[in-house]
Design a protein around this nucleic acid. Structure first.
Lengths: 191, 191
DNA sequence: CGGATCGTTGATCAACTTCAACGGTCGTGG
DNA sequence: CCACGACCGTTGAAGTTGATCAACGATCCG
């Protein structure tokens, strides 16, 4: 299972088998079942999560009490409330399993120690955040230049398997529209 | 001038004066005047920019040919098209000076060399991207949970000096609304 | 002084939301 | 394994937010 993490690491930095074994000790692997919550909104954010298999989502409640999903994490993606993790404060988001999943986790103290003991990991996470940041920049670009209709069709064409994989009301929320409107767009797409 | 960069660096990593002098050699300091363009949409993205004084913005043209501003950078902020920089491909955005500015720049080759020669800089940029990513996460949160009216008032309360500092049509574009609607909201705010 | 650019106003319009209702299906307990 | 309830996706009507368009006045800059 940790093989998935090893391959991901080796895309960015070179680590020997022995080094990897040592690095792995700073992490824990856990199994979570569908709907299980890893991080509660308002609670201190103590961990970052790396998806080995399965799918997680990040969400919060809007003023009407409706869940708004702002992020999904699939295999080999990191997910966390980064601001809250960096400052060890209350998370503004919740993180929940969308499917039964295997997750690699690391807590704040282990992370600090890891950086101190293996400076090469600074480089790995520099890449991880750099790419995550770039992905968010693209997302802002789409949100700012496309209508919701175009955004949905664009997303559908790019990630057809993902559209099938998650419930529609979560996808709708993630794309920033209502389930009703998403339903209307699907009909339009078919015809 | 480079003092501003030094102080920013030292918020995240410790570097001696001599080290800083060496590090500084990988960068160039340039002056740009208002409206000058540093990065053209469609051209290879060769540099990252750090604002010492002044203000830059990142924007692109939507399908109607209207400029959409997706990011501003004030003093001590990095700005670049990260995806295009990482892969040295065509930028999807343009970067332009909003005011006369003093800018620290670094090109791709120097960046690679810098990381190789001063691994501590991996840590610095790990922090830079981590925070930039976190800021974008917050932005998505606001965009997903607030009406444009609420978003504008919220922004106005948080950054009143900035609202005064940039032209209104740029601010409107950055907040994702039309200048006309922004004008309406201002009137509402006053009354 | 003159032209272009920027902010404002009001009228009209479109995109998307809200609400209510219905049918299908999934999973859970009996 | 079946039956029931809860949840999910769909549909259509009505409503709202925010965009578009056109026109005007102010201001900035050459």
């Amino acid at each position: 299972m940790s093989q998935i993490f090893k391959e991901h690491l080796q895309k960015f930095i070179s680590v020997s088998d022995e080094e990897f074994e040592q690095i792995l000790r700073y992490f824990k692997i856990i199994r979570v079942s569908k709907k299980e919550i890893l991080q509660h909104e308002g609670k201190i954010c103590r961990h970052q999560y790396f998806v080995l298999t399965g799918c997680l989502r990040k969400y919060l409640l809007n003023e009407k009490g409706i869940e708004v999903t702002t992020e999904f994490a699939l295999e080999t993606w990191w997910i966390s409330e980064n601001r809250a993790f960096e400052f060890q404060t209350e998370s503004l988001f919740s993180i929940q399993a969308v499917e039964n999943s295997e997750i690699l986790t690391i807590d704040f103290q282990s992370m600090e120690k890891l950086y101190a003991d293996f400076p090469i990991m600074e480089r790995y996470f520099r890449f991880v955040y750099q790419r995550a940041f770039a992905a968010y920049q693209m997302r802002i670009k789409f949100l700012y230049t496309m209508s919701k209709e175009d955004y949905f069709f664009h997303f559908y064409d790019l990630y057809p398997e993902f559209v099938q994989r998650v419930p529609q009301y979560l996808l709708a929320s993630f794309l920033g529209l209502t389930p009703e409107y998403l339903s209307e767009l699907r009909r339009k797409k078919r015809s």
